[in-house]
Design a protein around this nucleic acid. Structure first.
Lengths: 156, 156
DNA sequence: CATAATTAAATTGCGTGCAATAGATATCTT
DNA sequence: AAGATATCTATTGCACGCAATTTAATTATG
């Protein structure tokens, strides 16, 4: 038989209670769920996110894309090279500030947007929740994410 | 100028994408936030999850751990080998059913639990939400994850 | 104006995730 | 009992994420 102290400890380390794990495993499921819907486009989920960002606004720097997606150049540089190799984007140095690399859409990349419209429709159904639930959940997650990010420097 | 149909598609596209992205970017932030808190233990976040599962119940098969964490042997086998190399677990074939590999804790792995108690406490603070909010969010995410997983086979 | 500090992107190295496959073992079917 | 089927783990290959470092270019500072 366990004593009270051990029970209290358990309540902290129970996997089933972990909000973190819920976020982690749901994110993995999101990536897996996107995969068959993106297969026709030949995109991975992170690549799709970059395309969404570029469909919203062309001609962005790597830095600007990274800020929007919270990804650094270590992740983006090879990913963008793959999108370039696939003929969807172009990469060129900014002539004004040569530290920067400007990412633009090719005609193929731009025209893919139409075919991509079906993806969020299918995913919306897959989530199986109402628009209101989705909005509520989204704003709670963003608030939590910002709290987490703010806490990281303190913990170092 | 866009017509009404295009606008409707766009707004629907953005909503569902943002929920997916909120989950995705929050999960990335979770991993980054755990990192400094797990550094003292020498664990990555997925490794920590495996240890939590084993602290709850010793002597589990790779399959059982994988079911609880929704990870397959392609992810777990190398991860478990690293935990073994770190002296935290042991791996041995089940003599009754030799397809299975049983994972157990070493004394070092078992005793790490005490030091790990501080981790969920620190993370709880980092999330910056009440227990009730966390529980509510957790159950919503799990429900959504299960919907997503169920939808994957349909989409293939 | 020189140089120190900052910024942007690329590179390196490591640890996931996961699809696809292989190999060994166990179970089912007839 | 024999062959087909299913299960479990390992392996291979690829694409992230991210810390740490490097290189090049820009800006700030004395």
């Amino acid at each position: 038989m366990e004593n009270a102290a051990e029970k209290a400890q358990e309540s902290h380390l129970k996997l089933s209670d972990f909000l973190c794990f819920a976020i982690y495993s749901t994110a993995n499921a999101v990536t897996r769920a996107y995969q068959p819907r993106l297969a026709a486009l030949g995109l991975t989920y992170p690549q799709y996110l970059v395309m969404v960002v570029l469909w919203e606004q062309e001609n962005q720097t790597v830095k600007a894309i990274g800020d929007k997606l919270s990804l650094d150049s270590g992740t983006l540089t090879p990913l963008l090279k793959r999108l370039e190799a696939a003929g969807l984007i172009t990469r060129r140095r900014d002539t004004v500030d040569e530290r920067q690399v400007l990412i633009s859409l090719t005609d193929d990349g731009r025209s893919m947007r139409e075919r991509a419209e079906a993806v969020p429709v299918a995913m919306g159904k897959a989530f199986g929740c109402t628009m209101d639930e989705a909005q509520g959940l989204r704003s709670e997650l963003i608030a939590m994410r910002d709290n987490l990010v703010a806490s990281i420097d303190d913990a170092k």
